[in-house]
Design a protein around this nucleic acid. Sequence first.
RNA 1: GUGGCCGUAGCUCAGUUGGUUAGAGCGCCAGGUUGUGGCCCUGGAGGUCGGGGGUUCAAGUCCCCUCGGUCACCCCA
Length: 476
Amino acid sequence: MDQAKSYRAPSGTRDLFAEESRKFEAITSAFSRHMSFAGYGLLETPLFEEAAVFKRSIGQGTDVVNKEMYEFEDKGGRLMSLRPEMTASCARAFVQHSPPTPWRVRYAGPMFRYERPQAGRYRQFYQLGAEVFGTADPEVDTEVIWLAYKFIESLGIRSMTLKLNSLGDANCRPQYREKLVSYLSSHRDGLCDEHRDRLSENPMRVLDCKRPECVEVAGGAPVQIDHLCDDCAAAFRSVTEGLSRAGVAFELAPRLVRGLDYYMRTTFEISGDSLASAQNALGGGGRYDGLVESIGGPQTPGIGFSLGIERLLLACDAEGVLSLGEWSPLVFVVCLSQGEAAIHAGRLIYSLWGGGVNAQAAGSSRSTKAQMRAAGKSGAALVAIVGDEEAANDSVSVRIMNRDSASGLLERMATDWKAADSDQWSEFSEGSQVTLGIDRFVSIVAGSSGSTEVASAISGDSAGVPASQGIEVHNP
RNA sequence: GUGGCCGUAGCUCAGUUGGUUAGAGCGCCAGGUUGUGGCCCUGGAGGUCGGGGGUUCAAGUCCCCUCGGUCACCCCA
């Protein structure tokens, strides 16, 4: 059975290309722009770390560590793990480099969790996120939540809910925990099978268990938010007031408990209300003031969030937002014969590419008809035709294929080309054609298509990615 | 880890109560006279019907096993 086996991407993973990868790229670059304006520099970390980095920070009792980590032993006998999330890696980097605080970083990349795949849930999934290390100031809580919330909004997503909670701190959580345990113990029989046994292990979990039995018991349980110490209460008030002032709508979710142990004080989750599937969390985050210490660093407060790209995309599709422009070449080069013409055509397309012009060709060995069909299908604005005649006098015949996408060029062409070569160019209709010098053509086209895209992408750090032809996020 | 649904060309699917060389649309390739797209016409390539076993004169169609996909529980992004 396995001798003629055909391979496919591993379960829970997939190949991204065409329309989908363009959307990924659009979202990622929009995020880069959004976060760099707020002073968050990009942090890249390895896709794998020593497994202990995750175990000690995320928590031994969590599902993520318990049953979802991709662990392996490397050839040196070290126990490693693919990263199931990014906060632990960021904390490790923070401890390793001791950067000046507050340290604001953003990240984007794949995470790995071994779970059964499902709608909106993958084994390799992509997150965008940010962390701030070194300040406990509640203003930063507001900042981080605002950034997450407004980014989602900037994609055009409208139906979402921000749920907010405070989990208390080392001071008030233990006392609350006792109250909760004693309440739950007295209602032990009403709990679902799983939580009846694991009650004292992680009592908070019972609060967001979705089984009807637990929901009923949890409904009457004391909640942390009513048992905060003075410091925590003051901090939380500051966050809620800050959000209100910043125009971010939220609802209190006293039973919101996140699945990673390191969270304390402010925690939040943003769910997409347009998502039908069970996986409707677009993202979430919170404060983790004990995390850095837990992996051997100095006592350092921190807060962050992460968003799931796949979920964002799902929500965009559900709401019909994130529309990308057409992605088609400006020029399509058609070569009519082999030999000199093909050489000439080759020079032309390299000049176009070198000048930063989005250009394509279909191969000179194919028939004229096939090349023209390919040109039409590509959506190119212009076709540059090269045959023996053109090759002989160093020219190209240019034909308008798509008037709309050529519109930006038409004005330029009107003055430039009319004056230079053509008087039959008075009306720009599709199918109009004119012959002109190859250098002249390249300079005109390069001049009007943003020829310095690549250069500006490299130098213009803040933008990250240029508003190139076609790839841009549309904000309604 | 547990359960429901599904597996026929690259994609979306037809395939009658089991019966001759397994079909359509889209896509792809090539033509429809000499150097010109989108429409139309013609032709072509492409499937061991997920895999294995069984029942039968005969199985894409029935039975069993297995693999894969998908959705849900759980957890989260």
